[in-house]
Design a protein around this nucleic acid. Structure first.
Lengths: 364, 364
DNA sequence: GAGGAAGTTGTGCCCGCACACAATTTAGTA
DNA sequence: TACTAAATTGTGTGCGGGCACAACTTCCTC
């Protein structure tokens, strides 16, 4: 009770028992008579005891091995950010006994995912973070981990079944609305806008649809659907040739096309196309601060990028696992990260190396 | 060295001395022979020893009393946010012995500031955080604190003299550029835009000028200065009547006025004016997520608000002091917080109560 | 009523570090 | 050489909590 901090010792003294007994009550380890337990519990409540996390961590050198089952950043640079967020969190939590082992799979190869997920299951880890980009295969492992009683956290891709410890990511619908706002705000006059789904991972389908719905919702809700024509195109996994051809069609058929909303991180592909064709009067909104996109953001081809804070996703995922395992705190089942609007003029705050480690949110 | 963590004991063993000696070297407490000191220092380096902060904090009961010298939030709700950021940080750091005492002054009364600052000086605190909104008076105290060897951190308002431990705030120039971008992006056609300085604190003058420069810079740099006419108005500390009259003039003299950039948190005053006059074709960009502004952001009168992350300023200020005093870490002398672009569609991530505590950045 | 099992409760040590104090070595002087 | 002061180095304790183990109570059984 020195300095207003209540210790186990203080509780013990007040309850007229030993610290060991209080300890047993706190951890519900049994071997305490019902009456004493109730008393202690009451006093614990009254004095609102908060364990000293430092002392707790100091005493036990239990090592918590966490598995990070993530796609290979070399195949898609988007995955660099979650990886570095995970590494940042690992560094933070190292002194609490957190060790993270990475299991990198090829996002274009289901078998690679299965193989790595199997490794995870065998390695007897204490917790798992993953982006379940393969829906059906993920479910099998969720079942397994649930039975093994291993907590797992999802990021970037949400799968509600087999309730994970938590999901960390963005609200796709809302991000679609936001994209609608940003595009429409820059296009006050009646015109056509295009929703472009450009992806190499089939698994994102649901995401992209939700974004599209949010986007359309913005226009209908604000009674703008008569002023603007909304077109859509899917350019998933197609060759450069097909890609160009299909865009050529759209462009020539839609003389009043003034804006394109790219629902994935591939806005740079559209930007490049427009640049090659010397078209400069079409605005682009896209996602993700990958270097290709940043290039076109800086030269003005892309107006805004919505940042999904992928680094934060990895960072928070690990933190949630640590909160659950080490600190026995309650973990929010759902954490939507802010939808950051990034443009050339505020880009540096979101990417600046060395400091972007600092651009993660602190959990309350 | 268990689990890759190097302890003093490991260093001692390797150096063939006792832990006490290593401890003396680490803290440079003297009473160690030159040769041994060098040896230990080298081994410390080699094994790159990192002290266990928890164990360190656990042992010493030292209480660090920090002073928060901040304006009264009741006079201007902008100051609520830094205050709550400070309180959040205090809560986080309580277990490391950090206690924050608040000294609330009236931002419209220099004497109130001086009085409170004097109290701070007398209370023998270990560190100070303040927003030095009174330039000249602040300097006197900086001098004093410097002599007393009390570290102080500035937020929101930057004063470079007497180098503080650190400054935390935003880059005013850059935020002006950003405002320029946001306004111009929504106004593709030639028109007039107005820079409005509306303030009740004289002390902000430098800030506002810098913002204006940034704003103008956006237009000149992008060669848009022929397309747009930029007007300016100062409406500092004027009555409602004068306010209306001066705006009436501008509006009637400038039929093509299409956008207003309010350099302070008073965008809501303009929004209200336009609403009263039933003018709906003028876009507004402003600062700060105070409730009055949020109201007009939600009803569409204000297009965007730039968030200076005032909560983060308080939060980081205290954290910097703790890093310096408790953890003996190096503290960056300058920390610009991100310029968040906030609109109706992503507002919730930046204000949502209970969660906005989570919207602070984590220091690397 | 002795003996023992089961149910309770208390004690002591460790975690890594800081710091006070004890112990040892070295240097200096008579 | 003997003895002391100074310089250097080692040891022990406590911080708050976790956990193993010791110690103490009950309560039952023969």
């Amino acid at each position: 009770m020195i300095n207003n901090i209540v210790r186990i010792k203080d509780i013990a003294k007040k309850a007229g028992v030993s610290t060991g007994t209080v300890d047993r009550v706190i951890h519900d380890r049994g071997r305490v008579s019902k009456k004493v337990k109730e008393d202690v519990l009451k006093i614990l409540e009254e004095m609102n005891y908060e364990p000293n996390l430092m002392a707790r961590a100091l005493g036990s050198h239990k090592v918590y091995l966490l598995a990070a089952l993530i796609p290979n950043p070399l195949t898609d640079s988007f995955w660099e950010a979650p990886k570095s967020g995970i590494e940042k969190a690992e560094k933070d939590l190292k002194q609490y006994g957190i060790v993270v082992k990475q299991y990198i799979f090829n996002p274009y190869d289901v078998n690679s995912f299965i193989e790595k997920a199997n490794e995870v299951s065998e390695d007897n880890v204490d917790g798992i973070i993953l982006s379940p980009i393969f829906y059906r295969q993920s479910l099998l492992f969720f079942e397994k981990w649930k039975n093994q009683n291993i907590p797992f956290v999802l990021f970037n891709t949400q799968i509600a079944e087999y309730d994970p410890l938590s999901y960390i990511g963005q609200d796709s619908f809302q991000s679609g609305c936001l994209a609608g706002k940003l595009l429409q705000y820059g296009l006050p006059d009646p015109c056509s806008v295009l929703i472009a789904h450009i992806d190499e991972e089939i698994s994102n389908a649901a995401h992209l649809i939700t974004k599209e719905q949010g986007f359309r919702n913005y226009f209908t809700k604000n009674k703008l659907d008569k002023k603007y024509t909304i077109l859509r195109i899917e350019l998933n996994r197609c060759t450069q040739k097909v890609f160009n051809k299909r865009l050529d069609e759209i462009i020539s058929n839609t003389p009043d096309l003034a804006g394109i909303f790219v629902t994935t991180s591939k806005a740079h592909v559209i930007a490049k196309y427009l640049e090659d064709k010397k078209i400069s009067n079409i605005k682009i909104i896209g996602y993700d601060l990958i270097s290709e996109n940043i290039h076109y953001l800086n030269n003005g081809s892309i107006s805004f990028l919505i940042n999904q804070n992928p680094k934060g996703q990895g960072f928070w995922g690990i933190h949630h696992l640590a909160d659950y395992l080490v600190f026995k705190k309650k973990v929010p089942g759902l954490k939507y990260l802010p939808l950051d609007i990034v443009t050339k003029e505020n880009l540096s705050y979101y990417v600046e190396e060395g400091n972007n480690l600092a651009d993660l949110n602190v959990s309350g």
